[in-house]
Amino acid sequence: MSDPILRVKNLSKHFIITGSNIAGKTIINAVRNISFDIYEHDSFGLIGESGSGKSTTANLVLRLLEPSSGTIEIFGKDITWLDEAGMRRHRKDIQIIFQQSGNSLDPKMTVGELLMEPLKIHGIAGEKEYDKETDRLLEMVGLTPKDKSKYPSQMSGGQNQRIIIARAIAVRPRIIVCDEPVASLDVSVQGQILNLLMDLKEELGLTYLFITHDLKVVRHICSRIAVMYNGEIVEMGEMREVLEKPRGDYTKLLVESIL
């Protein structure tokens, strides 16, 4: 196998919460010393319950949070300690698809503006091609160009999730971190989005770091998974192997909990 496209080594993050009393400093170890590699065109699942540290990991990998220790490498380049401006150049390569919620898109920007932003920032297309490019993106995620003038609030949850996806793929990234992309969607819509994600992966040759608590979703998307518990990776391996023959106690409990 070739070199990993994303490599996380001994990554830790602790939050210090200052209490009201003088000595009241609580340290929360959200992520403890985790390591994993993701290879090109792979789809790596990070699963766990709420509070297991999987979302913190996603934010760390994207440098939306500052890690406490450890290293993050993409394409062999250490991005752990890049400054804000330095990191901004790498945002083109690694993108995130957030969980759709009321305000994950600026509610006062039209769909067109939202999609144009990444194009402008990273100079993806010339100014004259913005229109064409946004149309193309909209079509790719199953929306129509006439949606451009709409505001996120005028669209359904599923459509908003599609816009979030379109924004992520606009800069032509190679890695996309999907943070619970279907968790807040209705059952009848979840399938659409998951299918879209899988299609895009094929079409654009993407690599996913897929974060979810839903083991059913994992089954469809991921080839390798890591199970997180209490900030640590407790089990990692091929998806089928882990889910069908779980070794750790926690993984067993998790698999049993599927209804």
Binding site: G158, D186, V189, G191
Partner: peptide
């Protein structure tokens, strides 16, 4: 590998 999906939204 391919999910059954219902087009449109509620």
């Amino acid at each position: 590998s391919r999910l059954y999906s219902l087009e449109g939204s509620p």
